[in-house]
Simulated scan of single mutants.
Amino acid sequence: MSTTDLTQLAVGDVVAERTLTFTRDSLVRYAGASGDFNPIHYRDDVAASVDLPGVIAHGMLTMGAAVQPVVDWIGDPARVTDYQVKFTRPVVVDPVDGAEVSVTAKVGAVDVDAGTARIDLTVTFDAATVLGKAQAVVTPA
C-alpha cells in the first residue's frame, strides 16, 4: 500500500514490510555514531560474562531501524509525530551470519478528525518479538 490519504487507510492494512540485517560491522558503526561503546555490543566474552547469549544489537539501533519502513512509506520523517516501543528480547548478532530482523507495519487506528494514524509494528528476530507495543503515530499529507 502506498497511499497516505487517511480516508483510504483501514485498520489492519499493511503499509510496510522489511527485513533488516545487522552484522557485527553494523554494531561497530552504530557504536561510533552513537557513542555507545558498551562491550556487550562487540565482545562475546563480555556478553557471556553478563549472561547474554552472545553479542547483542544496541536497542536504539533496533528501534531506529524498525521505524524506517514507516518513514519511507509516509515520505517525511517529520510526519512521524510519536514513536514508542518496549524492549522485550535482545537481538543476538552472530559473528558470521549476523541477524535478520523482520518488520511489519500495519494500521492500528485512524483518527480522521485529528489527522493521524497509529501504525503498529511487529518486530521479530528468530521468530520472537523483540520490540513490544511498537507504535508510531503519523500525520499523512
Rank of each mutant, 00 (worst) to 15 (best):
K133W: 08
H41T: 01
S102R: 06
D13C: 10
A128C: 13
I40C: 11
Y42Q: 00
H58Y: 13
G98D: 00
D82S: 15
H41N: 08
D126N: 06
F125Q: 01
A66I: 04
N38I: 07
D82F: 15
G64L: 02
A114L: 09
T139I: 12
D44R: 08
I119L: 02
K133P: 05
H41I: 02
E17I: 13
I40R: 04
V50N: 08
V80N: 13
G32R: 03
G132C: 04
V85S: 10
W73P: 03
D120L: 13
Y42V: 02
T7P: 06
D72C: 14
T122A: 14
A99V: 06
Q135E: 12
T7Q: 12
R118S: 10
A57S: 11
P90E: 01
T124H: 05
F37C: 05
L61I: 08
K133N: 12
D51M: 14
F87N: 03
G75N: 04
V93E: 02
I74L: 08
D82M: 12
V137L: 09
D126I: 05
E17R: 05
T124L: 06
V137T: 10
V14W: 15
I119W: 00
Y30I: 03
D94A: 11
V28F: 10
H41S: 05
F125H: 11
A99C: 09
D76M: 08
A99D: 01
A134T: 10
V138W: 13
V92F: 12
L9I: 02
T62C: 04
V70A: 01
Q84Y: 14
P95M: 02
P39L: 03
V107E: 00
D94P: 11
D82C: 14
A117M: 07
P90N: 02
I119R: 00
A78P: 07
A141V: 08
V112I: 11
P90F: 05
A134S: 14
A33F: 13
V110H: 15
V92M: 11
Y42C: 03
T7M: 04
